[in-house]
């Protein structure tokens, strides 16, 4: 539109969510964090909760959450976001509190904190972004790294005999009584993104209705550390990742325990 006269539209059909700050992100080309950020921001807008939201950022590529989502944010030590969020939520029970964590953060160093926050049924929403690697530190092996996947600390490929198996957090957390909602989504196609939006809205709604902890696991990409072009990275999610990490809802509570 630059240079030309301003065109007039009758109806806005697409715009940046109010809760998404209008800045360029630091994410690499082909990374899906940006999509997940947008989905979270849209959900915050949808429920009109921007001014009553406190986000908890983890250590990893998503630490700059506070630069991109227009809400108050507390930065947690590596893996501790669910404990920090517990403190925030217990202090401000009427606020909306979410964590945004990567797979190294949630599924390795922070396993204890996520499991116990989930088991206590804390009214929190956890956005868990699984890209099978430690993105920020340079692509080391994560608990979610696929068998055979080469990373900077599994240069010959992950072997179960040495490193065990990729951990399926969405399924694991669904087993806990305190969990209200657990789903795994992907963002590698428009249809998947639509489903991801629905899952995040459901997860937020669970917190609003005080049903317990809600978690949405995003299968994401890391083209830089995977050594792939963005499209190839997307195809990897659609192929081997979804084969091992099936998409779907593993738990959806219909009624709160206290009712």
């Amino acid at each position: 539109m630059s240079g030309g006269g301003k065109q007039h539209f009758d109806k806005v059909v697409f715009k940046r969510p109010d809760s998404l700050v209008d800045v360029k992100t630091h994410f690499c080309p082909g990374c899906h964090h940006g999509i997940a950020h947008r989905i979270v921001a849209e959900a915050i807008d949808h429920f009109g909760m921007r001014e009553k939201t406190v986000g908890v950022a983890c250590v990893g590529c998503s630490v700059f959450l506070y630069d991109y989502i227009d809400v108050d944010v507390v930065e947690a030590p590596h893996g501790r976001a669910p404990a920090v969020a517990t403190g925030v939520k217990r202090a401000l029970p009427d606020h909306f509190v979410f964590t945004y964590q990567g797979d190294g953060d949630l599924a390795a160093i922070g396993t204890s904190e996520i499991i116990h926050a989930a088991n206590r049924g804390e009214n929190l929403t956890v956005i868990f972004v699984n890209n099978t690697t430690y993105g920020m530190t340079g692509g080391q092996m994560a608990p979610t790294t696929m068998l055979g996947q080469k990373t900077s600390t599994s240069p010959y490929g992950r072997e179960f005999s040495n490193d065990g198996y990729p951990i399926k957090m969405a399924e694991l957390l669904a087993q806990l009584e305190g969990v209200a909602f657990s789903a795994r989504v992907a963002t590698s196609s428009p249809a998947q993104i639509r489903k991801a939006k629905e899952a995040v809205k459901t997860a937020f709604d669970m917190q609003i209705r005080r049903m317990g902890l809600s978690v949405v696991e995003f299968l994401s990409t890391c083209p830089t550390n995977w050594g792939m072009k963005p499209l190839d990275a997307r195809n990897r999610v659609l192929g081997e990742m979804i084969d091992y990490f099936p998409l779907g809802t593993f738990k959806e509570r219909k009624q709160a325990d206290f009712v």
């Binding site: 507390v74 404990a83 920090v84 116990h116």
Partner: peptide, 23 residues
């Protein structure tokens, strides 16, 4: 609020969260 955490690691981070919330 009294809450028994799962570890001292979690404890101090709950403290961090509630302190950040101004308590």
């Amino acid at each position: 609020v009294f809450l028994q955490a799962e570890s001292e690691v979690a404890t101090i981070n709950m403290l961090l969260g509630a302190a950040a919330a101004g308590k």
